[in-house]
Computed example of a mutant assay.
Amino acid sequence: MLEFGGVNAMRILDYLTESSVLFLDDTSKHDILTTMAANAADLGYIVDKQTFAKAILERETIMSTGIGLQVAIPHAKLSTIKDFFVVVAILKHDAEWDALDKMPVRLVFMIGGPDDNQTDYLKILSKITLVIKNPARRKALMAAKDAQAVLAAFDEL
């Protein structure tokens, strides 16, 4: 971990692996989210993919996680999740997401974690936001052809 002013600074790369980066042909929000939840379960991040997927999908009914700039950040925090994780999906095609700017989504960052740790959740969300607000990095993510290129976008953060 990097340290600034004596305080441990988290890095997005602490929560990503090559296996948590997906390249999907899906255009259905439901299919994308269930595929990403299944990936989280396969990687051992969650115990019950149905419960997690249900929480993610229910969150979408409250308010879209499409934040604009062709990015969605679906998230759920459950007591059964021990540590935070991030699964990234690079979509090969536009997906309708009901985003704030009405644009389709091409990048999805799914965050899962324990329900009693809002601080780390906000730190992860902040780091992802830094990456996607940078037009060059966002464009590089959308054009990425492999997991290494995706991880490289987060290398300095």
Rank of each mutant, 00 (worst) to 15 (best):
M142Q: 10
S19N: 15
H30P: 00
T27D: 05
S28V: 01
K123H: 09
D94P: 03
G112N: 08
V87E: 03
M63Q: 15
L2K: 06
A9M: 15
M1I: 08
L69A: 15
A76Y: 02
V105W: 06
D25S: 15
V131E: 08
V105N: 05
D98H: 02
A99Y: 02
L91W: 01
G113T: 02
Q118T: 06
E3S: 13
F23M: 10
A153N: 08
A72D: 01
D31T: 02
K82P: 02
G68L: 00
L43T: 05
A95M: 13
N39H: 04
E58G: 12
M110G: 06
E18P: 12
D42T: 15
Y121S: 01
Y121L: 12
G6Q: 05
K133W: 03
D25R: 14
Q118C: 00
K54Q: 14
K127M: 12
L13A: 14
W97H: 02
A38N: 14
V86F: 09
A72F: 07
I81T: 11
D120M: 12
T34Q: 14
L100R: 00
V150W: 05
L2R: 09
V86C: 14
A9Y: 09
M1Q: 04
T80R: 00
L157F: 13
K145L: 02
L151V: 10
G5R: 02
L78E: 13
A144P: 02
L157D: 13
L122M: 13
F4C: 06
L22V: 01
K92I: 00
L141F: 11
I56R: 07
A38T: 14
G68Y: 00
S79G: 10
D155T: 00
I32Q: 06
M142V: 00
I81M: 07
E3C: 09
G6M: 08
L100A: 11
Q70D: 07
D115K: 01
K29D: 08
N117S: 04
E156K: 03
A153V: 00
L130V: 03
T129P: 02
I56W: 08
A136Q: 04
A76Q: 08
K29R: 15
D48H: 11
A99R: 00
L107R: 10
N134A: 03
V131D: 07
V87C: 05
D98L: 02
I128V: 13
